[in-house]
Write a protein that binds this DNA or RNA. Structure first.
Lengths: 353, 353
DNA sequence: CACTTTGTTGGAACCGGTTTCAGTCCGGAT
DNA sequence: ATCCGGACTGAAACCGGTTCCAACAAAGTG
């Protein structure tokens, strides 16, 4: 008579069929002790018969726990962000937690995301990537006792996984200086309000390297634009058309460095003979195009962040310690010694292939 | 005296403070009609005063709706899968739904994911990428009335977004044949049980192209391996060391094609002079290394799948129609005419090693 | 003025679990 | 035989919303 189940079985159905109380079914489900083996068997039998599975929503409500970890990040379109997410996925995969992704491309969406999250009823923990939540949100998160870990961002009151962007910027720039460059351009990132300002730190590293190298900072060499390939390309074009154009450019991200390479190509400027280019990140393509860059462990940053969060969720206390991941200069084919040029006399025909 | 809230405000608190019933608060929250303006204002005032925000879990339980869309996919590590996810994120971002990601690298995790999902209490809809859920799960999903859309997979009872893999395989192979190649190798994918078997279709396309081109199929040219760069590389090495080695290789994915390129490089075989290579997908790196490949709209497939699912969630019926996305051969630098080699004199008539 | 309507409202019953708490049943000790 | 503690068990009170339904007031109708 009841061909179609008309909805999944509830715990009450199991209890009825097994001839026990709901509490007992719950105890069996959660492996609590003190259930007589015979009773347990009856319950399991009923569960099997009804193909019963508890509703996780109801469970969440009752336990005040969701078994979900949320990742909040701006620009999921960014390849380096994706790499971090992959690390996070890797870390979370072997845990009982599931993953929710919030791509907050605008401040509006950011607010919405945190409104959902800061009560702690949508996710048990947060991984915040490459951005900083506004302070009121942080307060609420703390009040709701939702552990957070920052990845590629830093805050006095939160644990984080970062790299030393100042050192990285300096590393890249020093490499160019050591090769003999003195006219070194920089293409940075204009951070939206809500994003973490790592670009600024790389700029500082750039400035510091120049200073230590005894090279005067030229403001017309320092430009900012959104972190996109084609914006970087047009900025690079301007830079390269300067009367006294730089012989090297340090771009604050690989994506932007690729834009610089395109600009050079379309202007007929040869790399690295006439222009050296350094990027930052070491995304996959960097290896394929032979881009010299500062490698930061993107995947690892996500994995590590995930681990820290899991640890916090497991109840182990988590201090606001900031974990520093190593940077490494990867020298490939886009950097070389500058040619002595006044009016681009002769391109050295005996350049290293 | 109550400095710390000791937990977020509940609807009851709002009701009390506003001096109305809970039902009325709920009406105000959900914009129901028939609430006197004065009452509404009192409630809003109380909400503001308490900084109240409804618990989404409680809401979910009551409404039997989660406002979550889940993406289930094997191998989040795969760049083409990531590209699809980005398309999905793009489509979902502009909707009221949030996104959950289930990376099911093993059958075990797959089962777990569907156990969570098939009751429909964790997500309102599913996007299943590059895999096929087992039939019992599909039944449960249908019973629970959870709409599903397949991306890069096909099933008689479900709507899907796909490409014509047979045509794609044929397209790639025909390109090689038209260039004059007759000894064409194929490196395919060994699909785990639970994954959708597109590799098989590409193999069929390969076979069909050979047939139509009047070229005899040589089984020693057809190999399978997991979809990874280094496995493909070692397979390619074997292929290239064959006494009568192929002059061209069609790899069922760009990742594998990159492995082939590496194998060629380490064997000192020049591409495309001595070996032509065609991939499949057109991931970002393909453009940078100049790989000839069959482009499939990865991002678009995710976006389109997301759209279809949103439509279904909006109540519009959704038939099991399969949406076909276009393929396009992108000729770059890894394919060319074969050179006449002397060591092998008319291969097909003599004995195959 | 009595008698529907119609517009607002709050009590209470859900949604489907977990957990407290009080009770039952039992063997062992006095 | 009586008492006591511990092992099991189920009714009921949560978790925090939504919504049915009955109640009641104000307004419209005869």
């Amino acid at each position: 008579m009841e061909a179609l189940p008309a909805g999944a079985a509830r715990i009450a159905d199991v209890a009825t069929l097994a001839g026990v109380g709901e509490a007992t079914v719950s105890r069996v489900l959660n492996g609590h002790a003190n259930v007589r083996p015979a009773t347990r068997e009856k319950v399991l039998e009923a569960i099997r018969a009804l193909n019963y599975r508890p509703s996780s929503v109801a469970r969440n409500l009752s336990l005040r726990r969701t078994m979900v970890v949320a990742v909040v990040l701006p620009w999921f379109t960014n390849p380096s962000a994706v790499e971090r997410v992959r690390g996070i996925v890797g870390a979370i995969a072997s845990s009982p937690y599931d993953l929710m992704v919030f791509d907050v491309e605008s401040e509006d969406r950011q607010r919405r995301a945190f409104e959902l999250l800061d009560r702690g009823d949508r996710a048990d923990g947060l991984l915040i990537v490459s951005m900083l939540p506004p302070d009121p949100e942080l307060k609420r998160l703390r009040a709701a006792n939702v552990p957070c870990v920052l990845v590629d961002a830093q805050h006095a009151s939160l644990p984080s996984v970062v790299v030393d962007d100042v050192a990285g910027g300096e590393m890249a720039t020093r490499h160019l200086i050591e090769l003999g460059h003195t006219r070194i351009g920089f293409i940075g990132d204009t951070p939206p309000e809500f994003r973490f300002d790592w670009s600024r730190d790389r700029t500082r590293g750039y400035e510091r390297a120049l200073e230590r190298g005894g090279i005067e900072l030229r403001h017309e060499y320092v430009r900012e634009g959104t972190r996109s390939l084609h914006v970087a390309r047009s900025i690079a074009s301007e830079l390269l058309r300067l009367p006294d154009a730089p012989t090297a450019i340090f771009a604050a991200s690989d994506t932007q460095a690729l834009g610089v390479l395109e600009a050079a190509r379309s202007l007929g400027i040869r790399v690295p003979e006439e222009l050296s280019v350094v990027g930052f990140d070491d995304v996959e393509v960097a290896g394929y195009v032979g881009l010299t860059t500062v490698r930061q462990p993107l995947f690892e940053s996500g994995r590590r962040g995930g681990e820290l969060l899991l640890r916090a969720l497991a109840g182990r206390p988590l201090d606001a310690h900031s974990e520093l991941l190593p940077l490494e200069l990867v020298v490939r084919g886009t950097t070389g010694r500058p040619v002595r040029q006044q009016s681009s006399v002769k391109a050295s025909s005996s350049s290293p292939a």
